[in-house]
């Protein structure tokens, strides 16, 4: 039913794809983990592929498992957290703000 993670025939996820996803997620993984994750992710995708093989032509698209729409809140202000509490777990703080590493490196090109 579910494709075997050990079967290379059933491995649609390559090592390179795993490394790309890890980069996007800012996760550092070693070769062994990359191999293991490639197998696991392949198994997940195989499962999804099995679902894809079902005939759903008579089924309406579903955006959410609950049959609900328009769950809304009235536009009323509720108390926020105290600034001290918000900043209490920040590694670094300056002037009431979170202090973080620079967000963009210097760009060389000038027009």
């Amino acid at each position: 039913m579910i494709g075997s993670a050990q079967d290379p025939e059933q491995a649609p996820v390559s090592r390179e794809e795993v490394e790309q996803v890890a980069l996007l997620c800012r996760l550092e993984i070693d070769d062994g983990e990359a191999r293991e994750l490639a197998a696991q992710m392949s198994a997940v995708l195989s499962h999804a592929a099995a679902l894809l093989s079902l005939d759903t032509s008579g089924v309406d698209p579903t955006a959410h498992p609950l049959p609900l729409v328009n769950v809304l809140r009235t536009d009323e202000v509720r108390e926020s957290l105290a600034q001290g509490d918000v900043l209490s777990q920040a590694p670094d703080v300056e002037a009431g703000r979170f202090r973080v590493p620079p967000v963009r490196r210097r760009q060389p090109e000038e027009p």
Binding site: V86, A95, G96, F98, P101, P102, V103, R104, Q107
Partner: peptide
């Protein structure tokens, strides 16, 4: 300047 910044401060 954005390109020369040593660090950034964030207000949520």
């Amino acid at each position: 300047r954005i390109h020369d910044a040593m660090y950034s401060l964030v207000d949520y």
